[in-house]
Design a protein around this nucleic acid. Structure first.
Lengths: 179, 179
DNA sequence: ATTAAGTGTCACATCGACGTAGCGTTTACG
DNA sequence: CGTAAACGCTACGTCGATGTGACACTTAAT
């Protein structure tokens, strides 16, 4: 692939992720215009809208999978692993601000990968509970829901906080609250 | 208005809120079908799609405003007011599961009311910080983001937890965390 | 029972988004 | 340089959603 083509493709993916996050009904024409390319160029890379969506999902899933792989969730001390994971996943969420749950319903492969990644995180949080970092007796999934929500807020609302301090605040708020 | 007409209108509003929450691009025909009504009937009550959307927003804003009015946020002890507010807002969020931020961009009046309600809640949380229930030194809006996220999770993910226990868990997790 | 309000159905026009085609031009890369 | 790849542009057909109109029917309320 030619260098300019690769750059255009990346621009389309990035821009598409950003616009589709703001409005899942964003048109192909709007994405093309915002990416600075002709509408026809988008169709040259992606056969149809579905294919573009799928490519954006894949890009996000690849990035978050890389974070999971690097976080040593099963070996490292839980507190360390938790902080490292949060600090690394925030930039990914900022670069690919898509809402997974809402948009992947019609893409079974993406749904499968997302579910697998959720399972890995859930296993880690179970370990955290077993080792006493997280309290027992909570509804299953509650800690994960809180963690996901805090990460999303940090990624998309408090956009001017760097990943490091953001992870500090998320971990502290999750474990000790704001009281 | 005739009684059956009122019932149909309510069904359209309820069904519309539910379907539009799942998918903001839900078609008028789908809403009408799910409400058990002909498409033409929807257009008799609401001049166009915009008007239906606006009516759904208004219904949600009315309900949440009633909760704010009843919560005694400026007089009651902060811990009591917080718990009461959460317990009362969860059923509202379940009945009108719309994502405010994403959908009201083109309805200035709804946006204004939503902003006003956010301001009332923010003022309450400032009082909570002044009185020591919430820690100082947090980024502005962080406590509110956490509270909103927890309420949404409780309303739409943990749907089988009653409002009372749900409020217990939200307040406890917000103030003391899950560590 | 009467009546007016409300509804369902068939039909129609409009409009925007999708996806495709051809053609001339630009540009990266050997 | 030369060339093939990539691009921009204009145009076209299709399709689904929106919104409207006319007419016959049911049904709530007096």
């Amino acid at each position: 692939m030619r260098a300019d083509a690769a750059q255009n493709l990346d621009a389309v993916l990035q821009t598409g992720a950003r616009l589709l996050a703001q409005n899942p009904a964003t048109t192909m024409a709007a994405i093309a215009a915002a990416a600075g390319v002709d509408r026809r160029t988008v169709y040259r890379r992606f056969a149809n809208r579905e294919a573009l969506l799928s490519a954006v999902y894949t890009a996000k899933l690849d990035a978050s999978q890389a974070v999971l792989d690097a976080a040593r969730l099963t070996e490292a001390p839980v507190a360390i692993a938790l902080h490292g994971y949060v600090e690394a996943i925030i930039p990914v969420s900022r670069r690919w601000p898509l809402d997974i749950r809402r948009m992947m319903k019609d893409d079974p492969e993406a749904e499968r990968r997302a579910e697998e990644q959720r399972a890995r995180l859930a296993a880690f949080l179970r370990r955290a509970a077993d080792e006493g970092l997280i309290r027992q007796g909570l509804p299953p999934g509650w800690a994960m829901a809180l963690l996901g929500g805090m990460v999303d807020d940090m990624a998309h609302v408090f956009t001017d906080i760097e990943p490091g301090p953001a992870a500090d605040l998320v971990v502290d708020s999750l474990l000790r609250g704001v009281g």
